[in-house]
Design a protein around this nucleic acid. Structure first.
Length: 417
RNA sequence: GCGGUUAUGGUAUAACGGUUAUUACUCCGGUUUGUGGUACCGGCAAUUCGGGUUCGAUUCCCGGUAAUCGCC
């Protein structure tokens, strides 16, 4: 199974399996191995908000993910490239990924200025059927690409699959994503089909451009002494919304292409997210890593892993932390609540994170209420530690065959059901 | 001591002879899933006190109290 094939420096080796699609593996990259399943911390602008890289590795983070659109706007991928690439720029020596900007097609497009998220609320009755149109949108989609307006100064920028690849090669993360269109959970079936087709065509263009750039890079290495740019791996992104047949079609279409791995993106219905993910993974090549984009509630990790996911990333732990919502094994609590003002115990007494080992709820409550930066940092450390270690524990349970038992007891306690 | 001015949620304010008394912050909660946004959504909470005029007063009048400014 060990093969250090064409994509030198990358290797995905499955070490243990669950019944069904789940597995534990080691994903080797030019910047080190990733034990999977793993949680990828999100550092959109080449920084996990409020945390140094040392804090990320100390809390157990193996890898982090930055964003193409944001880094293109500031400081610019040319500056990152000049600095020696993202790893040097951000002082992170482990594996890194970049997202393609495809999510911003949604967040700055049909979802801009609304509260539409990638998870449809299952109890909100009938999902409204809308076109992917939004008056305040600052992203316009055409077959060729997407015109974004800068969130910083309103200036216009046109992203194509080719351009996203070029930017991501400049940024220099180990793994990066094809340029796709992330659709709204409220988009109609017809629109999902239309967007999925476009995503597939963009996937082909992304892959072609990637192949061209990788080849060019190899030639450059020979000419420019001492300038060895490591190879990068490209992941295609499966779409199809919450429609199983579209997920299947998307997975088959992309799975037949020569990607190094796959992302599963787009919008889901809360109730059947796991089945939609399962359908996608079932039709993807088994020997390549699968990344579930932007998903990160405790229950999602269990369901995702069961359905064949190797990597997760999500902004929820850090965003929630900044607003005071922190994980405990008995569910979330809002540490800013008045009842914690006089609580001189840690967030969780049996938690091994830096925040819990050194600080009290009362102190973190105080910091967050007073908007002291350290409050967001400590709460983020806790939440990231919590999800990173949860996924680590899930991985361990695959190796020792206790996954099912672990899942049941964990969910029962966290969700009280 | 005399004269002027002012008095509205915890704070700062808006308004009018008839509203469910405005708004912001604070406070009390909730929501955040490939990070535009330390963001969004709820909730609690007030007409200084006592008289009078009026169908009806937070509003107009008189008095008390308090703050503040000026004068002695």
């Amino acid at each position: 199974m060990k093969k250090d094939s064409l994509n030198n420096g990358f290797n995905f080796e499955i070490k243990a399996k669950l019944d069904g699609l789940g597995r534990a593996a080691v994903y080797s990259t030019p910047h080190g191995d990733i034990q999977t399943p793993a949680f990828v911390t999100v550092g959109t602008k080449a920084a996990v908000k409020g945390l140094t890289p040392e804090m990320i590795s100390d809390l157990g983070g193996q890898i982090f993910l930055a964003n193409t659109y944001h880094l293109y706007l500031a400081p610019g991928d040319d500056i990152v490239a000049k600095s020696g690439g993202l790893h040097k720029f951000a002082n992170w020596s482990g594996p890194m990924m970049t997202d393609s900007g495809g999510f911003q097609v949604l967040s700055l497009g049909s979802a801009f200025g609304t509260n539409v998220s990638k998870i449809a609320k299952s109890d909100s009755g009938f999902n409204q059927v809308r076109k992917n149109e939004n008056k305040s949108s600052i992203a316009k989609i055409t077959e060729d690409g997407v015109e974004f307006r800068s969130i910083k100064d309103g200036s216009k920028h046109f992203f194509t699959p080719e351009k996203s690849m070029q930017i991501q090669q400049n940024l220099g993360a180990d793994m990066y994503f094809a340029f796709d269109e992330c659709t709204s959970s409220q988009a109609s079936y017809e629109y999902q089909i239309e967007a999925m087709g476009r995503t597939h065509r963009w996937a082909k263009r992304s892959l072609d451009e990637h192949t061209r750039l990788e080849k060019k890079k190899k030639n450059l290495v020979n000419k420019v002494l001492g300038h060895v740019k490591p190879p990068q791996a490209l992941f295609g992104v499966v779409q199809g919304g919450r429609h199983f047949e579209l997920r299947k079609e998307s997975a088959q279409t992309l799975g037949a292409m020569d990607f190094d791995g796959f992302g599963i993106g787009g919008s889901f219905d809360k109730d059947d997210m796991d089945s939609a993910v399962g359908v996608a993974c079932k039709h993807l090549p088994e020997d390549k890593p699968r990344h579930l984009l932007g998903i990160g509630e405790p229950i999602d990790f269990f369901l995702g892993v069961e359905n064949g996911i190797d990597l997760f990333d999500c902004v929820a732990p850090t965003r929630m932390a900044r607003h005071g919502s922190v994980h405990t094994k008995d569910g979330k609590i809002n540490i800013k609540n008045a009842r914690f003002k006089n609580d001189f115990t840690p967030i969780e007494s049996d938690c091994g994170c830096y925040a819990c080992k050194n600080y009290t709820r009362a102190y973190i409550c105080h910091l967050l209420r007073e908007q002291e930066m350290l409050g967001a940092t400590l709460a983020s450390i806790h939440n990231l530690y919590f999800v990173v270690h949860l996924v680590d524990d899930i991985r361990a349970s695959i190796y020792d065959g206790t996954f099912k038992k672990f899942k049941d007891s964990y969910i029962k306690r966290y969700y009280k059901k």
